[in-house]
């Protein structure tokens, strides 16, 4: 090969080699198989998430729930102040939630609810425990333990709510319904959603997360 050919090819080969090295070191893009990419992102497992939430978070936070007697007295005195002190709300919605626990006497039993009086003589209906189908996000949003900002896809956050409700129906209500006859004493913890202050504060409609009857 004569000099002129060397002069022609050598710089070009050097440049090509440089480009190959640079692209090998820092590739400008990656080609990933779509199926592989989808499999690489496992679907959110709401059941496993709620397993952990139920045992590690919710169960250990029941002692942080507001005492129901204190809460109801506060609501009677000044509902706005009670909301500020004990209520939780998510984002800009007008709905808010209370997380409470207490003990009271069963004063009536309906198809989908149990009415509880917190007065020793059972003279008032202060709390209604929901015992039918559980809908909505009272427990997910009411405890203050879960935050939507931690979930990239809000569908996962909503799946958590559905799974919590299913668990309440399967694990909490079967122990409550058959034993909660009129006159029985119920110790409960749960969450109430306040969407309409005109109807939802008196009595409080509570989704129970824990209930024992004696």
């Amino acid at each position: 090969m004569n000099d002129s050919r060397w002069k022609f090819w050598l710089p070009r080969a050097g440049c090509l080699l440089g480009v190959i090295v640079v692209f090998w070191w820092a590739p400008p893009f990656h080609i990933v198989d779509l199926k592989g990419a989808q499999q690489a992102q496992p679907a959110f497992d709401a059941v496993a998430f709620v397993d952990n939430f139920w045992s590690e978070q919710l169960g250990k936070s029941l002692d942080r729930a507001t005492d129901a007697v204190v809460l109801i007295k506060a609501i009677h005195a000044d509902s706005r102040a009670a909301r500020e002190k004990y209520g939780r709300s998510a984002g800009l919605g007008s709905d808010y939630y209370f997380f409470m626990s207490g003990e009271g006497r069963v004063v009536s039993v309906g198809a989908h609810e149990i009415a509880i009086s917190l007065e020793p003589d059972g003279s008032s209906t202060d709390v209604i425990l929901e015992t039918g189908n559980i809908f909505g996000n009272a427990v997910r949003d009411g405890t203050g333990l879960l935050n939507v900002s931690d979930f990239a896809d809000s569908q996962d956050f909503n799946a958590v709510s559905a799974e919590i409700n299913r668990r309440i129906e399967e694990q909490v209500l079967p122990n409550l319904r058959p034993k909660a006859v009129v006159g029985a004493i119920v110790h409960f913890a749960g969450c109430a959603e306040i969407a309409d202050e005109g109807t939802d504060l008196h009595p409080l409609l509570v989704v129970p997360v824990s209930a024992t009857v004696r």
Binding site: A90, G91, L92, G93, D95, F135, G136, N137, S149, D150, F151, A152, D153, S154, Q155, N158, S161, A195
Partner: peptide, 26 residues
């Protein structure tokens, strides 16, 4: 409407569509 990421947008102001439709379903 949201995007499926929590480290991209500065904030996401979103309708709570799920809760709204729970009430609508009832």
């Amino acid at each position: 409407r949201e995007i499926d990421a929590i480290d991209a947008a500065t904030s996401q102001i979103l309708s709570d569509s799920y809760s709204g439709c729970v009430v609508l379903g009832q």
